[in-house]
Each structure stands twice: as structure tokens, then as C-alpha cells.
Design a protein around this nucleic acid. Sequence first.
RNA 1: GGAAGAGUGGCAGAGCUGGUUUAAUGCACUGGUCUUGAAAACCAGCGUACGGCAACGUACCGGGGGUUCGAAUCCCUCCUCUUCCGCCA
Length: 426
Amino acid sequence: MLELSFIKENKDKVLEGLERRCYPAETTQIIDQILDLNEQRKSLQAFVDVKKSEINKLSGQIGQLFKSGEADKANALKEDVAKVKEEIGGKESQLSETSEQLTLLLYKIPNVPHPSVVKGQSDEDNEVHIPHKGDLPVLGEDAKPHWELAKQYNLFDLELGVKITGAGFPLYRGKGAKLERALINYFLDEASKRGYEEIIPPLLVNEASGIGTGSLPDKEGQMYYVEKDDLYLIPTAEVPVTNIYRGDILDEAQLPIKLTGYTPCFRREAGSYGAHVRGLNRVHQFNKVEIVRFEKPENSYAALEEMLKHVTDLLEALGLPFRVLRLCGGDLTFASALTYDFEVYSAAQKRWLEVSSVSNFETFQSNRMKTRYKDANKKKQLVHTLNGSALALARIVACILENNQTAEGITVPEVLRPYTKFDIID
RNA sequence: GGAAGAGUGGCAGAGCUGGUUUAAUGCACUGGUCUUGAAAACCAGCGUACGGCAACGUACCGGGGGUUCGAAUCCCUCCUCUUCCGCCA
């Protein structure tokens, strides 16, 4: 959520940001509504505060009078209080309604994109930030997509997942399960090497946590919801991990805070089904290692570059052909100011698959969560939050299987062998 | 799941027979005095949010609601924690 003070002082920037996101014109009007409501709120509060102050004073006097036995005078004052209350009338409830409305409207305004983000409608307008190096791999005519390879080598089973749960819940087995576990451990170890503290968070979160990171309100439909306990299954470790510091005022010395966590991720994503979402390309449950950072504002973009390098290193080590995109305004997620998407090329499917997304949210999440720090002058400031996948597993597995297939079997990337304890899947 | 008790400012902890509590006191923390320096001692400051140039005002004693002229204090409700019992990886 944007800060009210920022909207007030930088209305043009906010509008220009909406423009680059290709937001509909109605959203522009919300900005004016917000500013109007805020003025209303301010005058309401000033009024109510003064009246309450009067009541407080009178009540104090009544107390004194009762003590000194002057009940008559006290009772007379009670009538004065009643008058003041009448003056307040519905203003107090108006005040709280106005504040609530204001918050709801603020929730509707997305983050202002970083100046480097280009205007664009959809993923077709994304810019290539780091192009793929060298030629794209070409496989033989008989190359198979990962869902066929999985069947051939008995690595994961989507039909069994259907039997046990439903569509989109893969069951990994044998070397498929071991490969999955190897990747998780490898990614966690690499994050640890770079100074991230490992976290195992709860997989269900409450409403406040969902609001903190921006998964709520509005996006309820994308999360699994346990009605009986009013809890949500996490769509990413970002939600529980970022909310660790919800409502906290940190010490400057604590920053930066670097956290990593492996969790399964649950996404309802009632989207389309078809050839392009076959196999592991899109599932309701997948595994992911997430990295999360809390930074001082002046350091957050350097941190983003570090994260970019981190993910780049992982993909290079795995030997997967990839490119990095800088998302255009229209493809940027609601809370993000700048996002880099990583896409891995699937040689068998002959298409790019998104495997990671690294974003700087600046103060958008921290303003919702009220996560601040005291700077050198002891002034409270919102921190910047960042996060990224390092990495999301399902599609990485798909690409490893497809790109590394040989007549003898699927070769395991060198860096994973200490974890898998086998070199080839055959 | 059942029973009992409890949730107060960074921590500890009073207040909880409703009215100088505008939340005592201690510790921690910050600044100052003293000192060669430090410690000790002493003095002062020391929560968050909103409004206001400011003085200051308002709200917050787990969350929400209620009673009252007035609520940390009484009532209702939800949440959490502790102890005991039950169940259980």
C-alpha cells in the first residue's frame, strides 16, 4: 500500500505509474477520492478530538464534585456532557467509516513502478534484461517432453495425484523424489552460503499475514482457504517469512535481514488447462526455495542486483539455458516496483518457462505491515522488502529432464550429484 | 477436547472494591554533571498512531463490542498463554 503522504506529494508520479501499468482510467479517480477522503477524515478527527476533550474535562470535574459531596452540581454537569455528546452525534462513527474506506481505497492502488520499468500491456512488452548466451539447445527428433520422460523413468505420477487428491497435485517417487530433495537442499545450501538465515515457517497463515504481503484482500481466490479455522494455505514462503517482522520497529543495526525458506506452495489458479500447462508446467502444489530481504531504502536496489546474480549463478551451475526479463508495467505484480523474471528454455517443448521472479517492493509491503526501523537520527522509516524464488522446483525439474535426456538416460547436473548420490536417471 | 488461572509500555511488575493512574516503581536504554578514563552516584529524558507551525489534543493496558457523566478497573464475546486432565506424531 502506498503511503498517503507520498500520494499527496507525488500525485503526478502515482498517476504516471498507473499509466505505465496500463491501468484503466477509473483508477485515476480513486487517487482523487483518496485525497478527498483524507481531508474529510482530518476535519472529522479534529472535531471529534475537541469534543472528546471537553467531555474528558467535564467528567473530571464531575468526579471532583462527587468527592466533595456536591452531587447537585455534578448532576448539572452531566447534562452538559449530554449536550456535547449530541454535538458529536454521528461524527465519531463517520470518522471510523471514513478511515476504513480510505484504507480500502489505498489497497486498490498498485505500487509505483521503478523509473526503468517500461510502459506495457502484457508479457509481450517485457524487455530482455539479460539475453540467453549462445545458441539454444536443439534436441533430436525423438526428444520427449518431461511428462513422457517421467512416465518412462517412473519419476512422478500425476494420475496418482488425481486419485489421492485431484488434478495438479503431483506425486514424486524414486529418483524423481530424490532429485526434488536434492534440488531443495542444493538451493538452501547456496542461500546459506550467501548469508541467508534458514527458516521453516508455518504453511498456513492467518488473514493479517495475507494482508501484510498483499495476498489479501482481492486475491482470496488464488489461495486455498480453510474455513473452519479461518486460515489460508500459503501460495509462497514469502507470506509467512515476510510477516515475521510485521508491526516491528527494527534497529538499524539489524539490517539487512536475509532469510531463506523451503516450503511447498499451494495455488488454486483456476486457469486454463491444455497442452501448454501439461505435466509440471502448472500445478496446484509445488516446492520452492524463497529468499526474502529487509533492506534500508538506499541499499535495496543493490540488494536486488545481488539476488539477480544469485539466481543467475544457480541456473548457470545447473547448466540450464535461461534469460532474464525486466517486466513491463502491465506485467508487474501489484506490490512490485521492479521485477526480474527468469525463464528457462525447455528444449523439448521449445518454449521458455518462468522459473523465478525477483522483486523489490520498496515500502509497499512494509507500509501494510508497518515494518519500520530507526535510522541514525532515530527517525522511524519504513524498510524496503524484496523477495525472489531461488528457485521454484517443478519447472526446473521439467527442464532438467527435457534438456539432459540422452539415449542412456537423463544426466544429473554435476552440482546435484553430491545430493542425489547418482549421476544418471535410467 | 475438558477444568482452572492469566494477558498492562523494551523487560519485570503495581493498579483491577470504576473518578489527580494525565498507567506507580524497578531494570534496561539515551543525554548531562562529576572523573585522566570508566564505574558508581546524581539530574533529565525515555511507547505507538492520528491531528496541529506549535503549545497541545485524541486514541491505545490481548482483539472486538457494551454499561457509565467517566473503564486498565464492571459486563459480553473472541483470541492467546500457563497449569492440571484427556488424546496424540
